[in-house]
Amino acid sequence: MYDGSKIIVGLLVFVGMMTFPFWNNIGKAAYKTPELKLPPKSVATECVEGKEFMREKHMQLLNDWRDEAVRNGERLYVSQANHKQYQISLQNSCMKCHDNKEEFCDKCHNSASVSPYCWDCHIAPPKKGN
């Protein structure tokens, strides 16, 4: 092998860098699902869909809501869980109950390192100061 030592050193550096996230996290606390602050029972007892569905699929639901409302003019959503009708609106429906963005949206998003751009346009409720 020509330049064998150089190649091996190069390979080692490469493998080391590729696996950096793994050995960097060794010994650190395991990932914990953040504790979200849900709206008090006096405000709402149920969401537009079940908890599991919302946790898993709220992003798809919001995507579909957006297209249905903005593009197809269908601005009401019939819940498949409780069959009630809800107005499709991030600002006027979702965040009327979930009025604490920092304790609800941000907690998970920060922990999962995602930064959706919803609030570049949509106005979040005023900060709760906690």
Binding site: G73, R75, L76, Y77, V78, Q80, Q85, I88
Partner: peptide
């Protein structure tokens, strides 16, 4: 379909 046009529209 779960999407409906409002009756107020």
């Amino acid at each position: 379909t779960p999407y409906v046009v409002s009756s107020k529209q």
